[in-house]
Design a protein around this nucleic acid. Sequence first.
DNA 1: GGAATAACCTGGATGC
DNA 2: TGCATCCAGGTTATTC
Length: 308
Amino acid sequence: MPELPEVEVVRAGLAPAVTGATVLGVAVWDERALTRHAGDGSAFEASLTGRRIRGAVRRGKFLWLPLEPRDGGGPAEQAVVGHLGMSGQLLLRAPGAAPERHERVRVDLAHPTHGELSVVFADQRTFGSLAIDDLVATPDGAAGGFGGDEASVPRQVAHIARDPLDPAFSDAGFRRALARKDSAVKRVLLDQTVVSGVGNIYADESLWAARIHPETPARDLSTRAVNRLLAEVRHVLDKALAEGGTSFDAQYVNVNGQAGYFAHSLNAYGRTGEPCPRCGRPIMRVSFTNRSSHFCAHCQRLPRRPRA
DNA sequence: GGAATAACCTGGATGC
DNA sequence: TGCATCCAGGTTATTC
């Protein structure tokens, strides 16, 4: 499932292909891919055709392509915002390439050095989406996301927290947020308004590495435990990024359609019943808010709460 | 206002 | 073989 490393692999693949390119044409095959767009498919096509793309930027699991203003000068005012959802793919294809299975949108580009190419948005489960959105200034004045210099983010991404790999991410702010939450720490890790980019897979992996039970109330964690957790989140995300992301099936691929290798490095997620790589006891799987948590009940003990 | 839950969606796996 | 059911999970709207 596309989490931060997978989205970053896609962003890094798109950036050299789309930066400086001009949109020749847009084809929307399925308007369900535009659920975050204010208008219909025709409006999306009209708004994007003829525009020049300035780059590819990412915050957490959102990525966007800032668009040059129609008059050509000044900071970008709009961007194409993308979210891959559960099964979205952004693929680079030659002009006129055969339609992909589950293709929803195709954008034809002319690049000054690479020539013509197409960006295909394919999505099996249609949880992903594309939209054209206004850019708004970041409250802290720092760059909006990874891969761009401009201090702006799409309006629909403004409520999303920075991710742990962002230089402007506030460790102190993260500690304060956890100290205020009585929810399970895993739920807080998945809350994109607290910390972005972490999904079910990397939440389970980070908690396993930090030896923290996923249902530990966030506010019960010591400062040392929170720091350890944050360090493990960063380590897991960095390692997954280096290995090209996690692919269990054809759901996640890079812009060239290739799978990542991090699934081979997982210690807890998807390893129900297998021995914990640390202690040898079986990895447990429990139901957790309509999904699953994987952890080692021996290494990740649920601390007793002090009596009130 | 914070926290929890349902709904959205498709296709593979499983059971009968 | 065919059909029904379950499961995967990111985000958001709704409910408590």
